[in-house]
């Protein structure tokens, strides 16, 4: 089709209508211009919100490397250029952070294994096997997501105290081996997306129900596994309330409980809290950055389903 120029607006003739004006007055040019403006607006808004969300992290970084006097100065100074590692040194030595990190690593590793294994097994059951009342059971299981964890805190404490499990990691780890509702839901949805033919073929070849789960379902559910593992890692690493309640001695503390020790009723030792919080988020940040591709593909599978 032949390219045509848009008609010149009335009253604009000759030299008054330059090439530039003609260019922007054509419908295609206007659309292109609008597109550019739209993109600029979208990116502008996204950048603004990205900055807003990053602000606490930036503030943490700034505070962690600032000399102690500047941490508490008013008005606050941002990136004064005065950089020190003293806060890291003092913070690390103020409390046994090496122990806290190891404890957190242990709790996180075991609870992630427990969560992923048990939730995938239960999710597989809900996805592949039909029994009377299974739907109701699934609904009840989902409904437990609505119960705020704080309401069950004291009953759980009483229960675990009677079992003699207080100040051990059992109250933190044991429940993860019995399936977590959110992850069960995630796995059930994922397993339902796997064509039934795979399982039928395996059954014909003599595969047991556990074999179906272990040999067929799990290897195909890698995105869901990684997504669940990442969410479980973030949850376990950042958990504060349960370790606070169930652990009592410093040698058992996790990172989050240790960090809270820098907060007093009347004032916080921000110059120590921020560098140690920074140390604490690095491992989980690495895990998230490495695994974000899997999170996205895992979640997209759920959305597509």
């Amino acid at each position: 089709m032949k390219q045509t120029h848009a008609p010149q607006p009335q009253g604009t003739t000759g030299a008054a209508t330059g090439a530039g004006i003609r260019r922007f007055s054509s419908p295609r040019a206007r659309r292109s211009m609008l597109h550019v403006v739209e993109r600029l607006l979208v990116y502008g808004v996204l950048t603004f919100f990205a900055f807003l969300f990053l602000l606490p992290l930036i503030s943490m970084l700034d505070t962690a490397f600032k000399p102690r006097a500047l941490v508490y100065s008013f008005p606050p100074t941002w990136f004064s250029g005065d950089v020190t590692l003293d806060n890291f040194r003092f913070g690390w030595n103020a409390l046994p952070f090496d122990r806290f990190l190891l404890n957190t690593l242990f709790v996180t590793s075991v609870s992630v294994c427990g969560t992923v294994l048990s939730s995938s097994l239960v999710g597989f059951g809900f996805a592949r096997y039909h029994a009377r009342g299974a739907g109701l059971l699934f609904m009840v299981m989902l409904a437990t997501l609505m119960i705020p964890p704080t309401t069950t805190l004291i009953p759980r404490f009483v229960l675990f105290a009677k079992l003699g499990w207080i100040n051990s990691y059992l109250p933190l780890l044991d429940p993860t081996f019995f399936g977590m509702p959110f992850f069960i839901f995630l796995f059930r949805q994922f397993f339902r997306s796997i064509p039934r033919d795979y399982f039928d073929a395996a059954e014909i070849d003599g595969c047991s129900p556990f074999g179906l789960y272990w040999r067929i379902a799990l290897p195909m559910a890698r995105p869901a596994l990684v997504t669940s593992a990442l969410f479980a890692t973030i949850g376990a690493w950042n958990d504060f309330l349960d370790p606070l309640i169930f652990l009592s001695t410093m040698d058992k503390f996790t990172l989050q409980v240790g960090l809270a020790t820098f907060n007093g009723a009347y004032y916080s030792q921000l110059h120590l809290l921020m560098p140690m919080a920074l140390v604490g988020i690095v491992p989980v940040l690495v895990v998230v950055v490495v695994g974000q591709r899997w999170i996205l593909s895992g979640l997209m599978r759920q959305v597509e389903k």
Partner: peptide, 25 residues
């Protein structure tokens, strides 16, 4: 002597749980 430390910001929850379970230090 077994030192059981609770950060101040979580003391209320811990104290109440320990009272409820009769496990105060």
């Amino acid at each position: 002597i077994q030192l059981e430390q609770t950060p101040q910001e979580g003391f209320v929850e811990k104290f109440n749980a320990q009272i409820a379970s009769n496990t105060l230090p």
